[in-house]
Design a protein around this nucleic acid. Structure first.
Length: 710
RNA sequence: GGGCGGUUAGCUCAGUUGGUAGAGCGCAACAUUGACGUUGUUGAUGCCAGAGGUUCGAGUCCUCUACCGCCCACCA
């Protein structure tokens, strides 16, 4: 036997070497695959953020996607898995801001271009690190087609889409209530906010003839009305009148309006209306044609409209306003009040609703198409309950604010009129006057929400509208991503796919869950229970980590990952290794030939294995990798090794030559096929063993054909 | 308030179309230079959350209840 066939199996001396062989073979690129590979199979990798190390969630998605790709490749498809890297707009800028903070610097004191350049360099450096970590996981993706979300063609395509949507009346500029983060100085989409339960006070303020309840007394200088329920007998007579109310800065005249939105049971049933600083109030004010008065600025400080409170931060102003109101005898009572408050998902700062001119995407017509496609069965979700969530979300679309006041991203190619506020796309940067009023124009300094560009990712990655890959491979076969993106990303890709290409971007959607710790608790740095995938591959090998991530982990649900589980699969890799050693030492000079299998017992073993292969193949086809992996694991260890090989020992030491020969061919055949089935899960150890299996000519296991089951 | 899921062995979880309960880890006893001690053999532990229903048959389908988790949300 080969001297290199040492014991035990050593992933460290194997994995990098094998990955290099694969990469150099060119077979990650489907264009180089042998002629038997005909039909396309296509998957786009959700581009990992190029702003830090891979975490165990990345390890999971790379594993699952690589399993699909390797399986399809072996089945004879022209399998293509396109990798990418995401500049991750706000995400990366947040990471970089933290870095600046540590260095005692601030982005607000930096020149825009200088900041962009710094973040660019930071990202490109991290991108290379990220790519190598993806390789470490064994990903068989086509690096020659890799795309970065800030590549020139991406920027151009995104700009063109913006213009097309504007021309089609699907994008408008408007004053809307935005979720403003006073720390990050940008607006956020609804999905970028997190609702937190906050302990506040509910203040009952005597307001002329009524009493209103509010948690934000500091905004009373921006009040424009009092709202009550139109059918509320207590206030019915006041509706339509104007009342005079007192505040520490003097008197205000406020209209009383009736609106169904007011809950009669809550507080006093009367509500002060501050359109500039509350989403509800803004909408109500729009319905009743009320003006809005801004009293809080972008930094979360009160402005000159607040009189003597001008310049104060919200918390400070609230305290003083309440004290002053108390002095004036206007506070009726104060209650403790636990209520949900939207916060910035990055820094937990309470969102300050503001009215700002922003670009919006009109979602209804787009979402309707997405819903139709889903109802027509063009999208299959794994697990299927995500289809319900998708459908619910698409049935209740809200217009999408795509403007972000951050530097790190794709600039919105538009001009804004300083006179009339009109905004319009200007891709060539040639406009000099406002289209509407001939006024002065300035370039929009905002950038697109990341999801505006990443929503077009499947199209862009394939070279829409006329690229060869796009023409041959759209729609793609599978999109595999985390279930947290069911709102953020999946709907946008579907919408853009339907809008731009007239078809869904993918037929199947496989959603993976979170990887939690051994106790099923969420991993977090503060809890100290984070498992670093790179440590695990170092300690137990990539194959072991991959198995641990996929066994017992069905699509759509969270999984618990214990280090012991990974260790268990390292043992399994070693077991497979030793099975190989046993078989090779008992079949020297033999090349597998099924026609030499002659005993009934062996034929039965072959039939049993064929049955298993059939079963596992259908698991693969139905995305049940959690079952397929467990079945082959169980078979190889507890059926093949524990039972079949044990009884083979007796046959090999016996006198029956015919039985001996038959058994040699049987175990060689079954083992060879088992290695193939294991390959998508444990690509390294199986490829390494493959090299030792006697065969007519040297090939790579990664392009071998999948075992037949019929 | 709305939506989605979960409740199966000590722990973490599988269980695809309804057909006499499974895995990993853990536990107990035994074996030992055998391909493998990163091993093998044997074993213990489950009224599959509770109640009702459909069925020849339910962990699996239906209804209700209880508890747990996640997501969404404009009662100030």
């Amino acid at each position: 036997m080969d001297d290199k066939f040492t014991k035990p199996y050593d992933p460290k001396s194997t994995e990098d070497r094998i990955y290099t062989v694969w990469e150099q073979s060119g077979f990650f690129n489907p264009d180089n695959l042998p002629a038997r590979h005909k039909e396309p199979f296509t998957m786009i990798m959700p581009p990992p953020n190029a702003n830090g190390d891979l975490h165990v969630g990345h390890a999971l998605f790379i594993t699952v996607e690589d399993i699909m790709t390797r399986y399809k490749r072996m089945q004879g498809f022209k399998a293509l898995w396109i990798p990418g890297a995401d500049h991750a707009g706000f995400e990366t800028q947040t990471v970089y801001e933290k870095k600046l903070e540590k260095e005692g610097r601030s982005r607000f004191k930096m020149d825009r271009d200088e900041l962009y350049k710094e973040i660019y360099d930071f990202t490109i450096k991290n991108k290379a690190t990220m790519e190598n970590q993806v390789r470490k996981m064994g990903a068989s993706c086509d690096w020659s087609r890799e795309k970065f979300t800030l590549d020139n063609d991406v920027v151009l395509r995104v700009g063109e889409t913006f213009k097309k949507m504007y021309d089609d009346g699907l994008i408008y500029r408007g004053n809307g209530m935005v979720n403003w983060c006073t720390k990050h100085q940008t607006s956020l989409s609804d999905v970028e906010t997190e609702t937190k339960e906050i302990n506040d006070k509910l203040y009952y303020i005597k307001y002329g003839p009524v009493t209103v309840a509010t948690v934000r007394p500091e905004t009373i200088f921006g009040d424009v009305a009092v709202a009550v329920h139109p059918e509320d007998p207590r206030y019915k007579s006041l509706v339509g009148t104007t009342i005079t109310v007192q505040n520490p800065n003097g008197e205000l005249s406020l209209k009383v309006v009736g609106d169904e939105i007011v809950e009669r049971e809550f507080g006093t049933g009367a509500l002060k209306i501050t359109p500039a600083h509350d989403k509800n109030d803004f909408e109500l004010a729009t319905r009743h044609h009320l003006p809005s008065v801004e009293v809080i600025d972008q930094f979360g400080k009160l402005n000159e409209k607040a009189g003597k409170y001008a310049g104060m931060k919200i918390a400070e102003a609230r305290k003083l306003v309440v004290e002053d109101l108390q002095t004036m005898g206007l506070i009726e009572k104060i209650e403790d009040y636990l209520h949900p408050v939207p916060t910035c998902y990055k820094c937990n700062t309470s969102i300050e609703p503001r009215i700002l001119p922003q670009w919006y995407v009109k979602m209804k017509p787009l979402a309707d198409k997405a819903l139709d496609a889903y109802n027509a069965g063009k999208l299959t979700f794994y697990s299927e309950n995500y289809g319900k969530i998708f459908s619910y979300w698409m049935s209740n679309p809200i217009d999408w604010n795509i403007s972000r006041q951050i530097v790190w991203g794709i600039k919105i190619p538009a001009k804004i009129c300083t006179k009339c506020g009109h905004g319009f796309p200007d891709l060539e940067n040639t406009a000099v006057k406002c289209q509407k009023c001939d006024g002065e124009i300035v370039a929009d300094t905002d950038t697109f929400d990341t999801w505006f560009s990443s929503g077009q990712w499947p199209l862009i990655a394939l070279g829409f509208p006329d690229g060869k890959d796009f023409l041959e491979r759209y729609p793609t076969d599978v999109m595999e991503t985390g279930y947290d993106l069911i709102f953020k990303w999946i709907p946008r890709m579907v919408i853009f796919g339907l809008y731009l290409a007239g078809d869904v971007p993918f037929k199947n959607i496989y959603m993976h869950g979170l990887v939690n710790d051994a106790k099923g608790k969420k991993m977090s740095k503060s809890k100290g229970n984070v498992i670093n995938p790179l440590d695990m591959t170092e300690k137990y090998g990539t194959d072991a980590l991959r198995m641990a991530l996929v066994v017992s982990n069905p699509p759509g649900s969270d999984t618990a990952l214990a280090e012991n589980k990974i260790k268990g699969y390292k043992n399994f890799a070693n077991k497979v290794w030793n099975v190989a050693r046993f078989i090779f030492s008992n079949t020297e000079g033999v090349t597998a030939d099924d026609s030499k299998i002659s005993t009934d017992a062996d034929k039965a073993l072959m039939a049993e294995f064929a049955e298993l292969t059939k079963d596992i193949t259908s698991d693969f086809d139905e995305f049940r990798f959690h079952l397929a992996s467990e079945k082959i694991y169980h078979y190889v260890w507890h059926r093949f090794a524990d039972v079949i090989l044990e009884e083979s020992k007796n046959i090999f030491s016996g006198e029956d030559l015919k039985a001996k020969t038959s058994r040699q061919h049987t175990i060689l055949s079954i083992f060879t096929q088992s290695i193939k089935i294991l390959h998508p899960f444990m690509p390294f150890v199986t490829e390494e063993i493959w090299a030792y299996i006697p065969k007519e000519k040297e090939t790579l296991l990664m392009i071998e054909s999948w075992p037949k089951s019929d």
